[in-house]
Design a protein around this nucleic acid. Structure first.
Lengths: 134, 134
DNA sequence: ACGTATTTAAACACTTTTCGTTAACTTTTG
DNA sequence: CAAAAGTTAACGAAAAGTGTTTAAATACGT
C-alpha cells in the first residue's frame, strides 16, 4: 500500500524548490545532475496534475450536471447563468460571483480567451452547492 | 499523457456502482468475473485515496500549520479553536461552523469517535482561508 | 445453515514509471 | 552578450503497477 503518488525523491525536490533553490543547487545537494532534478520535478508535477484530475472525476460522479456553458459566453454572464440553473434545482451556490469566476478560471484556464469562453464548459454541482468544471 | 489515475475500466465500474448495481451485475455487463470487478473497484478506490493523499501533501507545502487539535476534543470545540487560531494570523476562515465540521469529518473520518477526536489532527490554512487536515 | 455478495491472495504476462546518464538546446537574467 | 537556469531527447535498468484468472475465505441476511 503506497501512500501517495509522489516518491520520496519527488517530494524532496518539491520541498527544496518551495524553499527557492535552483535545480542546480538541488542537484548538488542530492548528488545528481540538474537534468535529473528537472525530470524528477516534471514528473512530480505530472503526478499532481493526475491526482487533481482523478478527484475531478470523482466530483462529477457524485455531482449532477448543472449546465453547459456555450463557447462565446462572456465570463461575467457565466456566474448569473450558473446561479439561475442552481436555483431551478433549489441549490444554493457556495460561491459569490468573484469567487466563482476565480474558481472556474483556475479549473479550466485553457477554455478561456480573454473574457470569453472558447469551448463549451460542463458545470457540475453537489447538493452542498460545490461546483466542478470540465 | 494520461489524464487520470483511473483506467477506463475502473471508471466504468465506479459509474455502475454509483447506479447501485452489484458486482455480479457489472461483471455480466462488462463480460468478466465478479472477482475481477471486485479487484477493479478496489484498486480504483486505492487510486482515489492516493490522489487525495498526493494533494494533501501539496496543501501542506503551501499552507501554514495552524494548530493541532488534541485527541479528546469535542467536535463542537474544534471550530472555535480553529477560528481563534486563524484570527491570530489575521486570516478569515472560508467556512462557517457547520461547513467546517462537515469538511473535517469528511477529510479524516477515522480520527473521530462519535463527537470526539480520537487522535491529534493537524490543521493547515492557506492565505485564502482554505483549510486542510492531516 | 444456505445462498448471495464481497473480499482476499497468489500467480501470470505485460506495460509503465522512475531514476539515472550524456549531450544539446532554450530561456532568463545580470 | 555571457553565464546561470531550465528543458528536452535518447537510452538503459530496476522497480512498480496493470488486468486477469482461479480458488479460497469472509460477511450477512433469511
Amino acid at each position: 500500500m503506497k501512500d501517495s503518488l509522489l516518491t520520496d525523491r519527488q517530494k524532496e525536490v518539491l520541498r527544496y524548490r518551495k524553499q527557492g533553490l535552483t535545480q542546480q543547487q538541488i542537484a548538488d545537494l542530492i548528488k545528481t545532475s540538474k537534468a535529473n532534478v528537472c525530470t524528477i520535478e516534471k514528473s512530480a508535477m505530472e503526478n499532481i496534475r493526475r491526482a487533481k484530475e482523478t478527484l475531478e472525476f470523482l466530483y462529477t460522479l457524485d455531482a449532477t450536471h448543472l449546465c453547459t456553458i456555450p463557447g462565446g459566453t462572456d465570463l461575467l454572464e457565466v456566474a448569473s447563468l450558473i446561479y439561475r440553473e442552481a436555483e431551478k434545482l433549489g441549490i444554493k451556490v457556495r460561491y459569490d460571483t468573484i469567487a466563482l469566476i476565480n474558481k472556474i478560471r483556475d479549473a479550466v484556464p485553457e477554455r478561456f480567451k480573454a473574457r470569453f469562453v472558447k469551448e463549451n464548459i460542463d458545470v457540475y454541482i453537489t447538493e452542498e452547492g460545490d461546483l466542478y468544471f470540465s
